[in-house]
């Protein structure tokens, strides 16, 4: 038995195909991104080693910092919207008939491609024929905004479909966690005279703090690498007002053929995500230990 279950050739045969795939297509590329970032390279011709010049240029690149700021704003919005999702989940987990059907309906936008969602919301925001402005004019607002063409509004306009898309995803996660809380705890609190709000804040939220932590990491990382929807809806415009890090990187490499500089941005994104993940986990870990 043990001999068969520790047969080295079988282990290699079962493990190597998948391992080779992730090494070749994930791990080697992330190392190469850092390496290409040290090069002056148009993607086709020869590379020229220029040391840290690309990374030094990043520091003075206002467009890069603008896109980084937009990514950060998206991350803050996303974390903020978790509170909204959590509220809906608390309602949903509170002895609701048809809770299962509700959460499935909430999830539907999450199943659609970001491209289709972007195309749909471009129509929703259409200045004259879109359902948004048709509604606003019908309730008497004379000059409704040109949502996606307005530099001060575009980032907020983009964030609405993002909330719409991800709501169901986070709600099903929170719902599953809330349903895992033993009923006895809630019942005991009720006897002690706790109100539903007190039960939610003092008992339920602390008990699912582990899941909340995971969703914060998911929301922040998801926002930092956000791309598809913005690329299709605005292409970073108007005038860079909705440019984010991933879309800026994409433009540098595949439109300006500046593969070296694009790689530097890509590598920055990777390092940033690893650092942020580590920091959030660390910052939230200590709290857990104190409470329970």
């Amino acid at each position: 038995m043990n001999q068969i279950m520790s047969d080295k050739r079988v282990i290699a045969l079962y493990t190597l195909p998948a391992l080779l795939l992730i090494l070749t297509l994930i791990y080697v590329p992330i190392v190469l991104t850092g390496y290409y970032g040290l090069m002056d390279w148009d993607g086709i011709g020869g590379m020229e080693f220029i040391g840290l010049e690309n990374y030094a240029n990043l520091i003075g690149d206002t467009m890069f910092w603008r896109s980084a700021w937009h990514s950060l704003l998206l991350a803050l919005f996303s974390v903020g919207s978790l509170a909204l999702y959590l509220t809906v989940s608390l309602v949903l987990a509170g002895n609701i008939k048809g809770a299962d059907m509700f959460r499935k309906i909430f999830l539907i936008p999450m199943l659609l491609s970001s491209v289709a969602i972007a195309q749909l919301w471009i129509r929703i925001y259409h200045p004259s024929n879109g359902v948004m402005n048709r509604f606003l004019t019908s309730i008497g607002i004379e000059n409704p905004p040109m949502w996606l063409a307005d530099t001060s509004l575009v980032l907020f306009a983009i964030f609405v479909p993002i909330i719409w898309q991800y709501a169901g995803f986070y709600i099903i996660i929170y719902y599953a966690a809330l349903k895992n809380i033993p009923k006895e705890l809630e019942e005991a609190a009720k006897i002690d005279g706790a109100s539903p709000l007190q039960i939610a804040y003092k008992i339920k939220l602390p008990l699912i703090s582990g899941i909340i932590k995971v969703t914060i990491v998911l929301a922040v990382i998801g926002s930092l690498k956000y791309f598809d929807l913005i690329y299709v809806m605005t292409d970073g415009g108007p005038n860079g007002a909705s440019e984010v890090m991933a879309s800026y990187m994409y433009k540098l490499a595949f439109r300006s053929n500046d593969f070296g500089y694009g790689s530097a941005v890509g590598f920055f994104l990777l390092v940033l995500i690893l650092i942020v993940t580590y920091l959030i986990r660390k910052a939230t870990a200590s709290k857990d230990e104190v409470q329970y």
């Binding site: 190469l32 690498k225 994409y250 995500i273 993940t277």
Partner: peptide, 10 residues
Amino acid sequence: MIPVHSTLIP
């Protein structure tokens, strides 16, 4: 954890 975009150019 690896962002897709950091692998795109390579």
